[in-house]
Simulated assay, not measured.
Amino acid sequence: MKKFRNIALFLSLMLIAFTIVGCTPKKDSNEGLKVEGVESQNKDVGEETQEFPIEIEDNFGNKVTMEKEPMKIVSLAPNNTEVLFALGLGDRIVGVTSYCDYPEEAKTKEIVGDFTATNLEKIIELNPDLVLVYGAGNKEDNKVLKDAGIKVLGFMPETIDAVMEDIETVGKVTGKNKEAKELVEAMNNKKNDILEKIKGQEEVRVFYEIWHDPLQAAGKGSFMNELITLSGGINIAADEKDEKGVEIAYPQYDLEKLIEKDPEVYLASQDMPDKTIESIKIRPGFEAISAIKDDRVYVFEGNEANVVSRPGPRIIEALELVAKAIHPELFK
């Protein structure tokens, strides 16, 4: 058993086990993704199929060559697990983390890791053809798996487009091209419906709380920032930068700045049982914020908290949840 290294991503969400984190900084979106292989068209039904072998290199330098469709897959992140199930690959999944809880069938799979550790011995025993990790994964763990002859690919999308590209990549490497393209098309259609609904609406100042003590926000570079922007919001934390002038995806945010920027909508996820709308409203100094005065605090709970924490196939549902919170009058 080896320890995962923490990263700044989703601190509050990690505590309630919505996301398994990686340990290496992310490269931009899916920039530099390399996919080599031969695709053919079934002219009778117009289905696009993937011929093997296929070589794929992820954004973190993990290059794999799949000689044939992987029939045994391990997922070490909930969002990757959801992608696999959405592509109809549930029967090929042989291992997941204890936090892979959607869909319901995911809970029946062999547990090979949790937030603090991953059971490499168990994974090797399962002898999977492919392991999907979050981000770059753990360098030492990856080496152990690769030395055992197991292919490793990492995904850490931070935009809707990147999520869709990752879905198509997983479709290619698993022989599910057609299913991936259909899923992406459905996601795009729903996204466009939501955007059309909020088109032309006045922008609203929004703050999304990642953690409360110390206060931490979703800044530019986080996928929540994109959801806020697409939903007709102005993310007040989007301009946060470090001492080198680099934008911070998950900056700490002091109360004085929060009051100064004065969000009209305050969003958070219930990472602890006692985090509620009321508990946020009574925090010292928060009474000066417009979102508090106008009763526009929204705490995503239960399944909603799950949805907005995972950059996977339900990210369009997350977009709709955020849009509803910002422009509730449009979704009655």
Rank of each mutant, 00 (worst) to 15 (best):
K2L: 15
I7H: 06
A8W: 05
S12E: 11
A17W: 01
P25F: 10
G32D: 02
L33S: 01
V35F: 07
D44V: 11
V45I: 13
E51D: 10
F52Q: 01
F52S: 04
I54Y: 01
F60Q: 03
K63M: 00
V64F: 00
T65A: 00
K68V: 02
K68S: 15
E69A: 05
P70H: 00
M71H: 11
K72C: 07
K72E: 09
V74I: 09
L76G: 10
P78N: 09
F85A: 08
G88M: 09
I93E: 02
G95D: 09
G95A: 13
Y99K: 07
D101P: 01
Y102V: 05
Y102W: 07
K107V: 10
E110P: 12
E110M: 14
F115Q: 12
T118H: 09
T118I: 15
K122G: 07
L132E: 04
G135N: 05
N138K: 07
V144F: 11
D147W: 05
G149H: 00
V152N: 08
M156Y: 15
M156Q: 14
P157R: 10
I160F: 09
V163L: 08
I167V: 11
T169Q: 02
K172H: 07
T174H: 03
T174W: 02
G175S: 09
E182G: 04
A186H: 02
N189S: 15
N192K: 02
N192W: 01
D193M: 08
I198D: 09
K199V: 06
G200A: 10
Q201F: 02
E202S: 11
E203D: 12
V204C: 14
R205Q: 14
I210E: 14
A218P: 07
A218W: 09
A218M: 08
N225R: 04
G232I: 03
G232R: 01
I234F: 06
I234D: 11
N235L: 08
D239Y: 03
P251G: 12
D254F: 11
K257S: 15
K257I: 13
L258N: 06
E260C: 03
E264L: 04
Y266T: 07
Y266P: 07
A268V: 01
A268Y: 00
A268G: 02
S269L: 13
K275R: 07
P284W: 08
F286Q: 09
S290L: 11
K293P: 06
K293L: 12
V297Y: 05
Y298Q: 04
F300R: 05
E304D: 14
V307H: 12
V308P: 07
G312Q: 09
P313R: 00
I315R: 12
L321I: 03
L321Q: 00
K324L: 09
K324Y: 01
A325K: 10
I326G: 07
H327P: 11
L330K: 10
F331R: 12
